[in-house]
Design a protein around this nucleic acid. Structure first.
Length: 318
DNA sequence: CTATGATGGAAAC
DNA sequence: TTTCCCTCATAGC
């Protein structure tokens, strides 16, 4: 589920698997052959996420690992990109999968590519005692490219504050959103206004704050916008820890329609959301049927009562 | 088995 | 505004 929390988890997985290691980079079907050649034989010295973007820094194998990376791999997973990790000691990680891999024995070598593998990384220094053989396959990304530093800076400059980055605060978000005539439902999807939230966090954060998604940013009190940002910090941090988006308070889940009503709940996710994909089901707080409509090309879900125009309080406080 | 839509965003109209 | 990317879980036959 590639919202920001997924990318921050992915950055950590890349760091754990490849940090400090020299890698072989390849593009099995040739789709990214030129880029892979630029990284092949280099050492992974950084791995970080900014919003929904993954940035992996590479340096020549013989350069100091502390030197600033010469080349950066930029990955955006888009709607369905994924990274699959494997290793010779059995550690398998299907990216954001919250289970499977159980009982995996690992393989002596990377398996044949499954589907279209844009980029495959394999550790090259295992034989020199640097650790077990590890590999990762990137499939279906929207973006996969090699950048130099100015391009990385440019990318970061066009992104709004990321609630998952401790040094990013709500100030720039408040400045942009607070004077905008665009609706908050749209603004939360604009990565240059706030980086890292996607369609689930947008719907859930607005519900939790009791904000009408169709209110213009400038018509929402700054305190309430700030509350959304701070709430996203909490929600997304929890997402990084668990690998899942759970926005409901314990008191509001685990009952009624969580498994019944034909609710399309995914395994282990029953009751995880207040409004996301709950069209027509009763609001967990006030029982009003949840509404949906397309905003910014995506389905927006909201409770017409808890998030009615003019509402000034969170449904938790009402 | 096939059809559909999905957590996103850039490029092509 | 539509198309692509080309994965994958789920719904439906």
């Amino acid at each position: 589920m590639p919202e920001g929390h997924t990318l921050h988890r992915l950055a950590r997985s890349v760091r754990d698997a490849f940090g400090g290691r020299v890698v072989e980079a390849s593009s099995p079907q040739g789709r990214f052959a030129d880029g892979a050649a630029l990284l092949d034989g280099h050492r992974v010295v950084r791995s970080d996420a900014v919003g929904k973007h993954l940035l992996v820094g590479f340096s020549p194998a013989d350069a100091s690992p502390r030197r600033t990376p010469q080349r950066w791999l930029h990955v955006h997973l888009g709607l369905y990109g994924k990274v699959f990790f494997g290793s010779s000691d059995g550690a398998v990680d299907g990216g954001d999968q919250d289970d499977d891999g159980a009982g995996a024995e690992g393989f002596a070598a990377p398996p044949a590519p499954v589907g279209q593998v844009r980029l495959r990384l394999v550790t090259l220094d295992a034989a020199e005692g640097a650790g077990p053989l590890r590999w990762a396959d990137l499939r279906g990304p929207t973006a996969c490219e090699v950048m130099v530093r100015p391009e990385v800076d440019e990318l970061r400059a066009r992104l709004g504050p990321d609630p998952l980055r401790p040094d990013d605060g709500p100030e720039r978000f408040l400045e942009r959103a607070g004077r905008s005539r665009v609706t908050v439902g749209a603004l939360l999807m604009h990565q240059d206004v706030l980086a890292g939230a996607g369609n689930i966090y947008r719907a859930e954060a607005l519900f939790r704050a009791g904000i009408d998604p169709f209110a213009a940013g400038r018509d929402v009190e700054p305190e309430r916008l700030e509350a959304v940002y701070e709430d996203l910090r909490v929600l997304m941090r929890a997402g990084v820890r668990s690998g899942r988006i759970v926005t409901t308070r314990p008191v509001d889940r685990g009952r009624r329609d969580d498994e019944a009503d034909g609710t399309p709940v995914r395994r282990g996710q029953a009751g995880a959301h207040y409004v996301y994909r709950r069209t027509g089901l009763p609001c967990r707080i006030c029982s009003t049927p949840v509404s949906t409509t397309v905003v910014e090309g995506r389905n927006l879900f909201w409770c017409p009562t808890c998030q009615a125009p003019g509402t000034q309080v969170s449904p938790f406080d009402a």
